[in-house]
């Protein structure tokens, strides 16, 4: 049976892993390759590396870093941040990334998805969507959750699928950072509406949240950052807890 996936997410600035809340009070926590290898060793099924660098120099460092990650990691990894052109995705593919995550640039230029999927295959394209539930609807935001758009979560996710997304990574802004659990209801709707896998993000605080997101949220994978970085839930413990609760995991 296909296993549910646990995906730690690492934020990268200037080639280093950083921790911080909403891009503020960001501190370096070490080498992304070593941290990634540690997670892989502990049983992470995949990794996501997000480049939060805004500078040209930082981008160059990130591409170099992707090459080093590819050399050392024996599990798949996705990279994201600042992919605005097909050529940006091509550079990351050549450097060894298995998938790219595209967020704001896809909202601004949806045709970018057709072009990247057409060039490199649907399996290479993860569309990340940040959305907020307010006034009875889920509104899609861009620029790290700072700018609302006129797009609605479910219709945008469906459009992304039709344009060639291989997976949807949905972050609920209402749940992100709360540690009160994932947006299971919206995830379930999303998962049932789409024919491609859904990665849940935002809200993980304890082991039961992962059980809920797989059982009730019907998610194919669950992503989290801080609980892994701060070792609040070690991956091996999480996986044995999921097994006890009859979730099929690797």
């Amino acid at each position: 049976m296909l296993a549910k996936r646990i995906i730690p997410c690492l934020d990268i600035r200037n080639g280093m892993t950083v921790k911080g809340i909403n891009f503020e009070n960001v501190v370096d926590v070490g080498d992304p390759v070593e941290l990634g290898a540690k997670y892989a060793q502990e049983g992470a099924d995949e990794l996501v590396y997000l480049d939060i660098t805004a500078t040209h120099e930082g981008r160059k460092l990130f591409a170099d870093l992707v090459g080093r990650i590819a050399e050392h990691l024996n599990i798949p990894f996705t990279v994201g941040g600042g992919i605005n052109h097909v050529s940006d995705a091509g550079i990351l593919l050549s450097a060894g990334a298995d998938k790219v995550s595209i967020n704001s640039s896809a909202v601004r230029d949806p045709d970018l998805l057709d072009r990247i999927a057409g060039g490199f295959g649907n399996q290479f394209v993860v569309v990340a969507i940040d959305a907020q539930f307010k006034d009875e609807k889920w509104t899609v935001f861009v620029n790290g959750g700072r700018i609302p758009t006129d797009k609605e979560l479910f219709s945008w996710a469906h459009e992304a699928q039709e344009r060639g997304a291989g997976e949807i990574l949905f972050t609920s802004m209402n749940h992100d950072g709360t540690k009160d659990g994932y947006a299971c209801e919206a995830l379930k709707t999303l998962s049932e509406k789409l024919s491609i896998p859904v990665i849940a993000s935002g809200g993980a605080g304890k082991e039961d949240h992962f059980v809920e997101v797989f059982q009730e949220g019907k998610a194919d994978a669950a992503l989290a950052a801080s609980i892994f970085h701060y070792n609040e839930i070690p991956i091996p413990e999480l996986k044995s807890y999921l097994k006890q609760n009859h979730i099929n995991i690797r």
């Binding site: 049976m1 296909l2 296993a3 399996q123 789409l194 896998p197 194919d220």
Partner: peptide
């Protein structure tokens, strides 16, 4: 009802 592509870890 299972999703395609078959993506992830299987035994």
């Amino acid at each position: 009802e299972l999703k395609v592509p078959h993506m992830g870890w299987n035994s």
